[in-house]
Nucleic acid binder design. Sequence first.
RNA 1: CGGGGUAUGGCGCAGUUGGUAGCGCGCAUCGUUCGGGACGAUGAGGCCGCCGGUUCGAGUCCGGCUACCCCGACCA
Length: 414
Amino acid sequence: MRQSQLFTKTRKEAPKDEVSKSAQLLLRAGFVAKEMAGVYSMLPLGLRVQNKIVGIIRQAMDAIDGQEVSLTALQDPALWKATDRWDDRNVDNWFKTKLKNEAEAGLSFTHEEPLTRIMKQYIGSYRDLPKFVYQFQTKFRNELRVKSGLLRGREFLMKDLYSFTTNAAELDAYYDRAAAAYKKIYDAVGIGKLTHLTFASGGVFSKFSHEFQTLTAAGEDTIYVAKDKSLAINKEVFTEDVLRDLGRKKDDFEEAKSIEVGNIFKLGTRYSEALGLTYADESGKSHPVVMGCYGIGIGRLLATVVEIMADEKGIVWPAAIAPFDFHLVELNPTGNQTVKKTANELVQQLEQRGKEVLHDDRVDLSAGQKFADSDLIGIPTRIVVSEKTAAAGKLEIKDRSSGEVRYETAGKIG
RNA sequence: CGGGGUAUGGCGCAGUUGGUAGCGCGCAUCGUUCGGGACGAUGAGGCCGCCGGUUCGAGUCCGGCUACCCCGACCA
């Protein structure tokens, strides 16, 4: 893509009402636009990153037998009344609205109920189980207070997977598979080393749920991480009882701030019983389906990566989710034809090999501005083509993360 | 929802005892520059968050509202 055609631009200063580092950088670099508090639109660069993250997660969910769907955002109150989750006293973050005929409707904040109702049409026997269903869908949560830019918003894209199994053992086995898949996702997006599987409060069905917590001072959660890194415990359940259960001592842990980038939860039969999702076993006897849910907030994950990887010059994207593979910076104020030709041919050559290139072909900009933009946008590899490189017969390659510079002939790139 | 703060051009900000709204960045045109956010000249761009009040006169004083940010509470 030619940068001269990109409708977004960078800016030197962040809007003053944005304090979060990740949001400031994403706004300055033109990845997102703020619609209102806690609500952000994805612009071309941001959407590219989001799509890469979605791709990584989709692959991981498919690998654990997930089947992708897309459920609706508009929700039927009757369904939620059946599980006692419509009343504001029980769920206080609904966005509720009215249809023209005065009937109520809600904007989905999660999808256990609608999916469970759908599954009732298809699950009747143990032979139909297990099943695993996921989606990427916008969630709406009417938070009392949003904060930290994209880290805690009112509208956000979420991957949520729901497991439908016959019994607790089958759920446990899948739960572990999901946890392993999540681990791979965080590794792939570059925050694996900082992300800890964390014991958190559970429900009636299981004592704990598990969160994936990424260590950073920008986090709003407090967790206790074992000094040997073997496990972590959310502050909300860091009690003597729990420590005894886990066979640990308080001294083994250190307190840390973190961002919750994922949550897996054993639902048990809470929703299947309330909504009548049952299956017949081999003897024909009926049982409620045992469920689990597994969520990842895409925008929050994206912002977390920015928060952690950025340096003083701007964003530093891990290769797997960068908006482009290469940022080709053409320094060509005089319109030198050899330089132009070299740049255009290089783009062609890289794209033919399946690489994505942002070609900064803008004229009338100083080298300094182009470099500053490149650093801010944070594409992993910067290639400079200029009269200088043309004269040397080599291209200048700079790694955004390490700052290392090397010189290569065109054929050796990519 | 409790507490604190902010609101002036696209962005960042100044605006004194109330007296015709200013600076930097960005933008447009021209010229000079040309490898780390260059320089000069000229120019465009404002319901000063909204509503009401005081006053001859309000960006400025008073009242109300809204939005945004921060802290706290909340976050199956």
